[in-house]
């Protein structure tokens, strides 16, 4: 066992030049992760960053950890293989909105359904950046892009709703303008046992600049970001004057003064039924309305690779298997 050594951001930074566009939101996510890992006392050799394809998926190259830059959409599959083979490792999935919800939608929902112990950081910039500006499955209806010169007619995914819909055991949202919030969210996601899905609102300053300004700009946050805090009434605004109530399964924004604080929903991350969190996820259809950030859901349920390991251990309880016994099982006969 190595002596505990205090590591720093430098120990988690590779020698490769970071090649995102200047001003890209990806830089701040990278910084948050590189600061967080040493702060959490994690060892670089036990971290594996697995990505798909897209701008954010270059992330592993910049981490001085183990990493796989895989193929488009398939990072959750590669990560599932790694995590199932090696439950001792911390496996992170770095993905984007196109990678995880378009070409890789199937793997995303199945990794969440199985509850593989993965920390999935989904960089949502609502655009295809690496292919230079086509609309994505999270782009708003009417989005004018190179592939939709007359405006997109596709209805977008709400990634938080998707994750809750497949009963992900940990679902959270953060944004690239708040390092402290990102680090705290990532820490919780990492510590969660099972699949943790984190949507990061991330600005693409080249193809979709300012997509989230309406909610994450400093002067907008108080009115437009709803900070979810476990056990507290869901209120926002400078004075906490706005609140959220849930009636008939539907979340609505109200003025606290007009309904009374006792009618305001109290956030509960640990509700087994995902409906409460789902209702919260429906408050905003895009970053143009008051939007909840923080942890929507954090529940315990069996972790895939732990269950796999448990079955193996149970089967091996009575001793090690013998290949010769296997080959010679059943009817055999001797020819002399």
């Amino acid at each position: 066992m190595a002596e505990p050594v205090t590591l720093s951001r430098k120990d988690f930074s590779s020698d490769q030049e970071v090649r995102w566009c200047p001003g890209c939101g990806d830089y701040s996510v990278l910084t948050a992760v590189q600061l967080l890992l040493p702060e959490m006392g994690l060892r670089p050799e036990n971290q594996v960053f697995v990505s798909g394809i897209g701008c954010s998926s270059r992330f592993p190259y910049y981490m001085n950890t183990y990493g796989v830059h895989s193929i488009h959409g398939r990072a959750p599959a590669f990560a599932t293989g790694i995590a199932t083979a090696r439950p001792d490792l911390d496996v992170w999935v770095i993905t984007g909105d196109g990678d995880s919800l378009s070409i890789g939608g199937n793997h995303t929902i199945h990794a969440l359904r199985r509850n593989v112990n993965l920390t999935i950081l989904m960089f949502n910039n609502q655009i295809y950046g690496l292919t230079k500006g086509q609309y994505s499955p999270t782009s708003e209806v009417g989005k004018v892009t190179k592939s939709t010169p007359f405006g997109s007619v596709d209805h977008p995914f709400n990634p938080i709703s998707v994750a809750l819909g497949v009963e992900a055991s940990f679902v959270a949202r953060t944004h690239d303008m708040d390092r402290k919030h990102m680090m705290e969210t990532f820490r919780r996601a990492h510590d969660h046992q099972g699949a943790a899905f984190v949507e990061i609102y991330q600005n693409c300053n080249v193809f979709n600049d300012g997509a989230f300004d309406g909610i994450v700009a400093k002067d907008q946050r108080a009115e437009m970001l709803i900070n979810l805090r476990h056990g507290e009434p869901i209120v926002f605004g400078d004075e906490g004057q706005h609140g959220v109530i849930i009636e008939d399964g539907e979340a609505r924004i109200v003025e606290v003064a007009s309904v009374g604080l006792d009618r305001i929903a109290v956030h509960d991350e640990h509700r087994v039924d995902p409906s409460f969190a789902f209702a919260l996820s429906r408050l905003s259809w895009g970053p143009v309305m008051p939007t909840p950030i923080g942890i929507f859901r954090d529940v315990e349920r069996p972790v895939y690779e732990h269950e796999v390991a448990r079955q193996l251990a149970a089967a091996q309880e009575s001793g090690v298997a013998d290949l010769d016994a296997l080959l010679g099982a059943g009817n055999t006969w001797d020819v002399v």
């Binding site: 895989s70 599959a77 590669f78 990560a79 293989g81 790694i82 083979a85 090696r86 490792l89 199945h110």
Partner: peptide, 18 residues
């Protein structure tokens, strides 16, 4: 696996992990 593609990816991931 959930599909053929995932099965290949998982197998490669497992090989990467030893």
């Amino acid at each position: 696996a959930e599909d053929e593609i995932a099965a290949a990816g998982m197998a490669i991931g497992a090989s990467y992990a030893g």
